[in-house]
Design a protein around this nucleic acid. Structure first.
Length: 618
DNA sequence: GTTAGGG
DNA sequence: CCCTAAC
């Protein structure tokens, strides 16, 4: 199973950074290479949580009958995951059932080592307001440890009720969670919940342990987790504005960081590992957004419960949505408060402009709304892992320059999508980084992330996050679209309004004659000379006008007389036009000396022709 | 600023 | 005639 997972990630091209125990900094960078252990551990936590949650839900939902089979079959995507799930399932279920409320919320807080050294706790949370959170804190460190740990732990947060209920199969994702993590994980929140869970008597550590090896769980988890979801605006999230800032700094400590370079992988793993990642993800995500433009990817958790034969339902838990990128430029002297406001405004603008939801599977946007989940393959576990939702600005008028939203722009979309989607690895992050702005980051939030590493914390409000990430935050969508639209319009209007079209002044026969004569002498291609020679005093006749008139004269001469409009031009002049045009077309006219000769030739030719005719007539 | 062409 | 690209 693990292998699969890896492959999966591999597909993405990202390697999850291992994280488990090493200090974040170490992990993130150096360790990143070490995927296995760390990752696994991390993953496990999530997976466990997810799996547990999912199972609980499923069971609660489904009849008991399905359970056994499910456990076997359901393995989460990751092979390892499967086991965990299975093992876990029952215990969890039992727990849930006992409690009866499991579906409402299940939380797992600390996970311990597989061996049992570590403890894992599974808690039930019932507070509606609270969101269930799965953390793998213990893995990293003591759950008690506080914020940092929490941060690292970060993981999946769900709205307790809705989410939990929804969870069926696994829980994925997470990156996003960063926000969630921030908020909750830190501090008190986490503890609080934990405490609740314990008190509640929900799942206990024991249970958790029983579930399985944390390691395994972790392993699985990763698979579940999707990298793509980067940032998130957790729906649920409570605002924690004030705290947010401080936290972030803390977050940084947390160590999450972003690896933007591979956002996905980073996310996934990091997220698992630490909350930072989420932040990172944001950033990365942001970057991604830039590319893509649009949207917003969401961290989604999809659960599927294939087992239930009854009516198969696919459950999705959408933790958060990434906010479209916003670009914020603000003076260094601006206050943090103003920065927040600025970001908030930007975010509000984006959200307020109207959004539509996009569904991505395997990084591909599913545009056909008529397809069933089954048809799209969304019901399969594997696919679920790659499932993602995106918020896209509704194209208001002109499609934004970016490809962002418009589905029409496949490439862009794809890229974006891809980036967002966990499955596909994304490059953007790199780009974003590149773009970066060291400066901006510095200004804005230094803390946030000038380094990817430093993490921004999710803890902060979305806004905050946004800001942080912001180094490049731009609400691409609506704003750009409008702006774009505006530009063109304005331009058009300009011309008409500002510079009224000149009044039409048809050439008189005499003017035509003068023009023909001039062209015969200097040739075509020397309109300025023609102007000077024959229309010097005619201010309303520019050399461009003369050129255009010659063009029309040639055309007129070539068409049937009946087709000609306007004041009739003597055929004689039209003949001269054709003669001169033919001549100069072959001679490139340019030298005056030659011109003179040319003139003669032309004249002669013309005369000859006429003469011939005349002779005949005569 | 001119040319050359498309609109 | 306008608008632009290309000189």
């Amino acid at each position: 199973m693990v292998v699969k997972k890896r492959q999966y990630y591999g597909f993405n091209g990202f390697h999850m950074p291992p994280v488990p125990r090493a200090p974040r900094s170490a992990r993130q960078r150096g360790l990143s290479l070490n995927k296995k252990k760390v990752e696994d551990s991390q993953l496990c936590a999530f997976e466990l949580l997810a799996s547990l949650a999912g199972k609980l839900l499923q069971e609660s939902e489904s009849s008991a009958s399905s359970n056994a089979s499910e456990a076997n079959n359901q393995p989460i995507i990751g092979g390892g995951g499967v086991k965990c799930e299975q093992a876990e399932d029952r215990p969890l279920k039992a727990e849930c059932l006992d409690h009866g409320s499991c579906r409402e919320s299940a939380f797992v807080t600390g996970f311990s080592s597989p061996n049992g050294d570590q403890k894992s706790l599974l808690n039930d949370f019932r507070h509606a307001e609270s969101y269930s959170i799965l953390e793998r804190s213990s893995m990293i460190s003591n759950s008690n440890s506080s914020e940092k740990v929490g941060a690292d732990l970060k993981t999946v947060i769900c709205k307790s009720k809705s989410v939990c209920e929804n969870f069926t199969g696994k829980v994925e994702d997470s990156f996003d969670s960063k926000v969630a993590c921030d908020g909750y994980v830190d501090n008190g929140f986490r503890r609080h919940q934990v405490g609740d869970g314990l008190d509640t008597g929900g799942l206990t550590a024991e249970n958790a342990c029983s579930l399985k090896d944390p390691m395994e769980m972790c392993m699985k988890f990763p698979t579940l987790i999707k990298p793509d979801s980067d940032v998130e605006l957790p729906l649920r999230r409570e605002p924690v504005p004030n705290t947010s800032i401080p936290r972030r700094r803390n977050d940084t400590n947390w160590g999450m960081k972003p690896h933007y370079r591979k956002r996905k992988l980073c996310y996934s793993r990091e997220s698992c590992n630490s909350p930072d990642k989420s932040l990172t993800g944001d950033k990365n995500g942001t970057a991604v957004m830039l590319h893509g433009a649009n949207g917003v990817s969401s961290s989604v958790i999809g659960h599927q419960s294939p087992f239930h034969s009854k009516d198969s339902h696919v459950k999705f838990s959408i933790k958060s949505f990434r906010v479209p990128e916003l670009f914020i430029e603000i003076p260094e002297t601006a206050t943090v408060g103003s920065l927040k406001r600025t970001v908030l405004e930007a975010v509000s603008a984006v959200l307020g402009s109207g959004l539509r939801v996009g569904v991505l599977l395997h990084g591909m946007k599913i545009r056909d709304d008529n397809r069933t989940l089954l048809q799209t393959g969304m019901t399969s576990k594997e696919n679920l892992d790659t499932l993602g939702f995106s918020l896209e600005p509704i194209p208001v008028q002109a499609p934004p320059p970016l490809c962002t939203e418009d589905p029409a722009l496949l490439p862009c979309d794809t890229s974006q999508l891809i980036s967002s989607s966990p499955t596909t690895p994304i490059i953007d992050s790199g780009i974003s980084d590149a773009l970066p702005d060291p400066p901006p980051s510095t200004n804005l939030d230094t803390n946030t992330e000038s380094n990817h590493e430093s993490v921004s914390s999710h803890s902060d409000m979305v806004t905050d996050d946004t800001l942080l990430d912001s180094r490049a935050l731009v609400a691409v969508p609506p704003i750009n679209a409008e702006a774009l639209a505006m530009v063109p319009l304005s331009q058009k209007s300009k011309r008409s309004e500002l510079v009224p079209r000149r009044t039409r002044r048809p050439f008189s026969v005499s003017e035509v004659e003068a023009l023909v004569h001039a062209v015969e002498e200097v040739g075509t291609g020397r309109w300025r000379d023609v102007k000077l020679r024959s229309f010097e005093d005619a201010d309303h006749r520019t050399y461009v006008d003369l050129k255009d008139k010659w063009k029309t004269l040639v055309h007129t001469a070539r068409i049937a007389p009946q087709q000609r409009r306007g004041e009739p031009v003597p055929q004689e002049l039209l003949d001269r036009v054709l003669a001169a045009h033919a001549y100069w077309s072959q001679h490139q006219a340019k030298q005056h000396s030659k011109n003179q000769a040319a003139i003669l030739k032309i004249t002669v030719a013309h005369a000859v022709r006429n003469g011939v005719e005349d002779s005949h007539s005569i």
